[in-house]
Design a protein around this nucleic acid. Structure first.
Length: 181
DNA sequence: CGGTTTTGACCAGCGC
DNA sequence: GCGCTGGTCAAAACCG
């Protein structure tokens, strides 16, 4: 599996960029990535099966975890993807436009979880963001659903290939070493 | 003034 | 059936 910046079928870490931070590598580090395809997730704890709530429950390394044929997404939205990264900021701009619709304190975590929806018309992709309970310098982001549109950022890049052909896809990425297969 | 965020209330699913 | 928990709604507050 490879991640293409122009592929909007799934939100992916490669599409994240940092308009407010010209040097994201300075305080950004991907720690873990979980591919929770088709609403299925690795239920590796004894906690209630709300899926990716578990990713903060166990120590993690740079592994891609994928499992299929077990539990379905509660909402039936299809793809679910979660990753954990070291970052000072929680609301990273991944190129899509999100609207916050909820904030909730969750059990076993001192940090609240924030809920966002993609505001593009007809797109019901959601994401959850919370700080790792064990290490607050890490942020756990979970995407749920599939975008039915391109990222505005991707569109922007595609419009200026002659101007800066490498400006969007060739920047150093914390994900590139882990996910370019 | 319109869009976004905050926050308490409400609802549904799950375990006991 | 009941209580707990996570997820969503919606009104109010906030901000540019």
């Amino acid at each position: 599996m490879s991640f293409c910046p122009t592929d909007h079928s799934n939100p992916n870490p490669n599409s994240i960029f940092f308009p407010e931070n010209p040097d994201p590598m300075a305080d950004f580090e991907l720690s873990d990535y979980l591919m929770l395809d088709a609403g299925v997730f690795e239920d590796d704890t004894s906690e209630k099966g709300m899926g990716v709530a578990n990713e903060s429950a166990t120590p993690k390394h740079s592994n891609i975890r994928c499992k299929s044929g077990e539990k379905k997404s509660k909402l039936g939205l299809g793809h679910r993807i979660a990753f954990r990264m070291k970052s000072e900021i929680e609301a990273m701009d991944d190129g899509y436009k999100w609207r916050k619709y909820g904030k909730k304190s969750v059990k076993n975590s001192p940090n609240p979880r924030n809920y966002y929806k993609c505001v593009s018309g007809g797109c019901n992709v959601k994401k959850r963001i919370e700080r790792d309970r064990d290490d607050k310098s890490y942020v756990i982001t979970t995407y749920e659903g599939v975008h039915n549109h391109e990222s505005p950022y991707t569109s922007y890049c595609n419009q200026m290939p002659l101007m800066a052909p490498n400006a969007c896809i060739s920047q150093p990425s914390p994900f590139s070493s882990s996910f370019s297969t």
